[in-house]
Design a protein around this nucleic acid. Structure first.
Lengths: 226, 226
DNA sequence: GTCTATAAACAGATAGAC
DNA sequence: GTCTATCTGTTTATAGAC
């Protein structure tokens, strides 16, 4: 029998192990992949027993889905306040929109590259992204689609290019891609640059380049049809 | 006992199954991941028996390494002629270097995104990249390092920024990243853009944006210190 | 070299004691 | 709710027939 999804906020024993299992799942699925991580490892990492996975999530697949949902909830919580501010402000002036794009880039770099805890999140996401899986649907609808749509709308405000045009969508994907690569290719990047890890100094260097790229692209789009 | 690495060019039975196993390994490791693909599946896909993997490669890990080596050999074969032309031409004029960067981008898009056969290659690479593994060393030294170094040198010729500077290295990574994302995030991209797949038309659209981005970045770098 | 049979370890799921 | 013991299937690796 699977525990209902009604989240309990108190520190009940049940909820504690549930959270611990999700944390452990996120970590091990992210680092070793879904197939590479065994339920025994995950239970051990969470300080729980093997049976608890079946009890709380119905099985390994259920834990995967719960991890996906947890990521979506967490990110939406952060994003909600940012979005609320934007939407309330009404239509954006191009200058404001450009600043907003830079802020979005900063947030992405900070979250995707720098925050150590986010590493597990992002790597989990990217692994799910590599193949169609039930967890991917949760993530796509909960994060990818709203985030990407939002950035496309800001892009329209900044450049005048229609938000839902193919060109705008692709451009926004390239902006995301240039940042994401530093997480996927992290090992190669560190080796090539002689970095021991990616801390504040290193992520600042990445951000500087990403920002310059964005500014350059914006500048060229602005004067495309003078 | 592991078969020596002396490659045979004739269609001997031994070499045939060896090649078939590598092809099958590349395909299944790429789509399902190393842990997700079983040796039984691979042997079946290759039309061989399970024991042949141990015979030819000493085990599953050996097959993984052989797949990595196969990718390196294949890509180096393609890259060799291109590089030979460049190196022979001596120091590059900025205009020529810029054209070369665009060509490199075209090649990357064509290889990474469009070519269906390359899909297995790239996905295998990206999966290995996600965690440190013996196969990664083979790939880093054989492909990543020489490719990236090469692009950095062309970048220097085009912009005057030192090839081995941190900024140049990071910039080249962003150029690669914006393309690579369309392979990793392919499912999300297809869903968002309403594409049924990424064929010639779609990859042309991606290339157009990537090229515009490159031109914009180059333009801004050129006039940074007027 | 190829293929089969088998061993030894490990996977996820489950039943039941507490 | 937690935890243990166990079932069933699958994994890789190996030994040996052909």
């Amino acid at each position: 029998m699977i525990k209902s999804s009604t989240a309990r906020v108190d520190g009940s024993s049940s909820d504690q192990t549930r959270q611990a299992l999700i944390r452990a799942g996120l970590k091990l699925f992210g680092t070793k992949g879904y197939d590479g991580a065994s339920t025994r490892e995950i239970a051990a990492e969470a300080g729980a027993n093997i049976g608890s996975i079946a009890y709380h999530f119905g099985g390994k697949e259920g834990l995967r889905a719960a991890c996906a949902r947890h990521i979506v909830d967490t990110i939406q919580g952060v994003a909600r306040q940012v979005l609320a501010l934007d939407e309330a402000a009404g239509p954006m002036a191009p200058e404001v929109a450009r600043k907003r794009l830079e802020t979005a880039l900063e947030t992405m770099v900070a979250f995707i590259i720098a925050r150590p805890e986010a590493g597990e999140f992002v790597q989990f996401l990217l692994r799910e992204l590599a193949q169609p899986t039930p967890a991917l649907d949760i993530i796509y609808d909960g994060i990818f689609l709203p985030m990407h749509s939002r950035m496309c709308r800001i892009w329209e405000a900044a450049t005048g290019e229609p938000a839902e045009s193919e060109r705008t969508k692709i451009t926004v994907f390239t902006l995301i891609g240039q940042v994401v690569y530093f997480r996927i290719g992290r090992i190669a990047v560190e080796r090539r640059l002689g970095w021991q890890g990616i801390g504040p100094a290193e992520s600042a260097a990445v951000l500087a380049v990403a920002r310059d790229n964005l500014d350059a692209i914006l500048a060229s789009r602005g004067k495309e049809k003078p």
